[in-house]
Computed example of a mutant assay.
Amino acid sequence: MSHPEGDPLERLNRLWSQLVAGLARPGPRSEAIAAYREVNALLAAELGLGHEPVRPLVATSAAELRAATEAEFIELLRTVRVRSGLTLPEISRRAGGVLPRSQVYSLLRRGKLPTKPHQVRTFVTICGLPEQQVARVMELWATLRERAGLTAGRT
């Protein structure tokens, strides 16, 4: 079968390279997201892979994985979510019963540190952070949680 745009696997390789390069650059990642979507369409059309592929890893530097306050931690979660390209309802759907829709919204909007570590872990994993960065986010959460517990114990 002849393909007017060239060999699909060569095109897939080119798009994958664009995606990786786009995710490595700081700033807007619209080209990388467009390449990611095109890669998904090619995988579905040419290889018959499912319509809901694994999310790409979110490019986040170690320097960005910081939070000294609860507000900074919530902002970090917001940043991870935005870079993932997922909507809040998509995150909830992918999390199944672990992270109900109302909880996804409250993780990012209430301005308080989340109380359930498994929900934080599920959230950042679904958003595409690699395991090492998920572990770093969980360390931040534990440190802030401990600090909040100590502060509450003094009052």
Rank of each mutant, 00 (worst) to 15 (best):
L47M: 14
V137I: 12
A148N: 09
G111R: 05
R78G: 14
P8L: 02
K112I: 11
L65E: 00
A45W: 04
L43E: 11
V104F: 09
I126Q: 00
E146W: 09
S84F: 10
E31I: 11
P28S: 12
R93H: 10
L49G: 07
R154D: 06
A45V: 08
A35K: 06
F123N: 01
S30T: 14
V134M: 04
A95R: 02
P130K: 12
A152N: 05
A135G: 08
M1S: 15
T143E: 10
F73I: 00
L113P: 09
R121V: 05
A71C: 03
R145F: 01
L86Y: 13
L57V: 10
E64P: 04
A35G: 04
L15G: 03
L108Y: 08
K116M: 11
W141D: 02
G48V: 06
S17D: 13
L113Y: 02
H3P: 00
G6H: 06
M138T: 09
A34I: 09
R66D: 04
L86P: 02
R29M: 13
T151C: 06
P89I: 06
L77R: 04
R11L: 13
M1V: 15
E64Y: 06
R94P: 06
V120G: 03
E72H: 08
S106N: 15
A62E: 13
K112Y: 05
T125S: 15
R37S: 12
V137K: 01
T125H: 07
E10Q: 14
R55Y: 03
A67W: 01
Q119Y: 01
G48S: 10
L144K: 04
E131I: 07
A34D: 07
P130L: 09
E46N: 05
G50K: 09
A59D: 05
E90S: 09
A21H: 09
S102C: 04
S84K: 05
T151G: 00
R25G: 06
L88D: 12
A63S: 13
R145E: 06
L88G: 07
Q133F: 06
V137C: 12
L86G: 04
T69K: 10
V58P: 06
A67M: 02
A142W: 01
K116S: 07
P53H: 08
R136P: 00
